[in-house]
Design a protein around this nucleic acid. Sequence first.
DNA 1: TAGAATCCGGACTGTGGGTCCGTTTTGACG
DNA 2: CGTCAAAACGGACCCACAGTCCGGATTCTA
Lengths: 202, 202
Amino acid sequence: MTERKSRKDAARNREAVLAAADALFTRGGSPEDVTMADVAAAAGVGKGTIFRAFGDRAGLLRALYEVRLEPVREAVETGPPPLGPAASPRDRVPALLDAVLCFKLDNRRLALALEEGGGGSPYRAEHYERWHGLLRAVLEQIPGLADSGFAAHALLAATRADLVEHLAGEERVPRERLRAQLADFVAGFLASAPPRGAAAAE
Amino acid sequence: MTERKSRKDAARNREAVLAAADALFTRGGSPEDVTMADVAAAAGVGKGTIFRAFGDRAGLLRALYEVRLEPVREAVETGPPPLGPAASPRDRVPALLDAVLCFKLDNRRLALALEEGGGGSPYRAEHYERWHGLLRAVLEQIPGLADSGFAAHALLAATRADLVEHLAGEERVPRERLRAQLADFVAGFLASAPPRGAAAAE
DNA sequence: TAGAATCCGGACTGTGGGTCCGTTTTGACG
DNA sequence: CGTCAAAACGGACCCACAGTCCGGATTCTA
């Protein structure tokens, strides 16, 4: 009942396309250099098959993205702290942003392709809205912070795929250093709301 | 001696193209919908003329961007506080970011076109490097802040053209409200470094 | 005003996303 | 197992657009 039963060749080809696209995008090189025809050839299907299954290029990218994002989403929704819902807001915010950063580090070309040529704004994508809504809600629980809606946008903007690519890929900033920098930045922002009765400096 | 003397028709056409492109990009509608042929037609020249004068689409966009950015750049480099060099770092950081935000609000479609289809990363553009270098230097002067290089990137990311477009264009957030939100966010971040001997909360 | 250097402009090319439709596969039913 | 309609296949085809090319027009120099 989950979905209309689809013909088995359709399902098989869908998987083949996803696998092929996955491989092609993971391989080094600009995401723009991977054409739909390339994907079709690598998957051993015709172009028509891809477009029927995914609608357009952006659809394919989104589908791939969702697949890869699945584990992270699960960890966030039902996992243990600090990522899961049981964590305190002050711990969860940095954990969430770190998770996003790590995801983009692990899926640079894909995230890049999706954010750049992904049709319209990345801001209309529903996966962005998920992240934003969640982050906003968590920020909301921390009193004394500025507009949490904008703050959520701004913090997420620090993990934009092309920025990550620039820093990690272009400037060769090591993964752990980048994570630390983001963590510091987030910590700085969170520090603007006094943790308790405001006991101030050390 | 500023530049090789160019033929007067070349100069005239260059201006015509800039003016036409300016008008076309300012007019509502997606920047992608403005083709080079459109610009050529509007300017009353042939396509070849545009490509000879600006190299490629990105070159035209960059040239336009520079022209529009000129006043802001001057205000930043030689203007009065809080934008100019005489301002204290704590005042100048928010002023700089506000200036960037206002600029992008005033030039939404253009900034969008440049950041999206602008060839490669926006992070390799030299105007980005100017802003980043400047912001970084100013942040550097505020003791107690996290890595100023990354912080500069992160703060600038909050003014990304597509985010601005999303908030101001899509969600109809009024200009002044957006400025206030950014200002709050920046203030929050700056507050993480104690202004003086850390007199703490109010 | 002659001649050369430079520029003009629009026809032309290459590329890649997306569509179309004749052919093939699948699965339900008798 | 044989038949048939629905669904899927695939690659030839279309189109839009960035970027190129070159014969002809324009502008500078002498």
